[in-house]
Write a protein that binds this DNA or RNA. Structure first.
Lengths: 184, 184
DNA sequence: TAAGCGCGTTCACGATCCTGAACACTGTGC
DNA sequence: GCACAGTGTTCAGGATCGTGAACGCGCTTA
């Protein structure tokens, strides 16, 4: 099971203007390793591929992002009235797109009614999330930090940290948020 | 260089309700291999990890989407006046956060002046991007598709497709966008 | 022409992976 | 109690990886 990652590595390396030896030196491997990988003559271990990519530098996820094309093209445009409503309990999540398989990004147009709250039991999941507050006042709890955000304010954190959202204002609160990967 | 991917594989496998043997059978490897990987006792080759993930199934990119942040905690809250202005040519990109290394997500609060345009030469880069239009009218070109979006409308596409944005309205246009991975 | 330097490739060998088989443990049914 | 089917772990050994060193080629400079 030797994957065809050689050309991919070669392309990435050349894009960054590195020779095999220079990349090998930065990565702490031998130039032979780089050569063998690029020519698909070996099936590198995850660890050694990671070391090589560190020399670029590039993450494994980014490196493998090219293996997506599997299925054909996906929907691109989403009119406001086609956003998928997945709200519950005073909170409305309007999701861009229905089927998120194969997507690396989930965008939500969120509306919190006055007093709406994701609950005392803090949320936790894999991935990363970020958002910008459009209107209203949102109290955001992340780990042991609490902060109230207003229009134009933003947050971003690792979703494995326990978190919670609460509309502490009198009016509805609107937030545009993004998660990666889709986990809902 | 044995990476700490064992727990990650174990978590993914259990999330899908599979035993080591069942996963091994689907993947075409031995249960010993799964066990050894999960306990970090070996540094698997990329090929064998791919085979194992095929049995779930899950892509390598998705699997590596949560490379451990390595360093400690990062900034979480970003007041509106601390967003980093990286605008040019009638377009203002206000970025959430300064240093994006280690982040998997880039959130921008974008403002397009009337007539602002990302240019005739279409953009292309790795990753995926998505956004929701807050106000104004934005003409979005993706591949051979063109569409004008208004408030509440959204888009999402693979950034390797050539793309372009243009404010075709009389008033300023505001968009909240997300990209993964950060590439700017 | 020849020396010098950089490039990518190839080779032999020690280190490591991956397998097939056994092992120990737990829970279920009779 | 015992058999049995399920779980995850451990072990010897052939297959493969990754290294250090050599090789061949093209370019620049003297």
């Amino acid at each position: 099971m030797t994957l065809n990652i050689g050309p991919r590595l070669r392309a990435v390396r050349k894009q960054n203007g590195l020779s095999q030896r220079e990349l090998a030196r930065r990565a702490g491997v031998t130039n032979a390793t780089v050569s063998l990988i690029e020519s698909n003559n070996i099936n590198p271990s995850v660890g050694s591929l990671k070391r090589v990519l560190d020399g670029i530098p590039m993450g494994l996820s980014e490196f493998f992002a090219f293996e997506m094309p599997e299925d054909a093209e996906q929907k691109v445009f989403f009119p406001a009235n086609e956003l998928v409503e997945i709200g519950r309990g005073g909170i409305s999540y309007r999701q861009v797109g229905v089927d998120l398989t194969g997507r690396a990004l989930q965008i939500l147009d969120e509306r919190y009614g006055p007093g709406a709250d994701t609950g005392k039991i803090l949320l936790r999941h894999e991935g990363e999330e970020a958002a910008v507050v459009i209107s209203g006042r949102l109290e955001v709890t992340v780990g042991d930090q609490v902060r109230t955000l207003g229009p134009g304010d933003a947050y971003q954190f690792d979703s494995r940290q326990p978190h919670r959202f609460r509309n502490v204002g009198e009016e509805p609160c609107r937030v545009i948020s993004a998660c990666t990967p889709p986990s809902f």
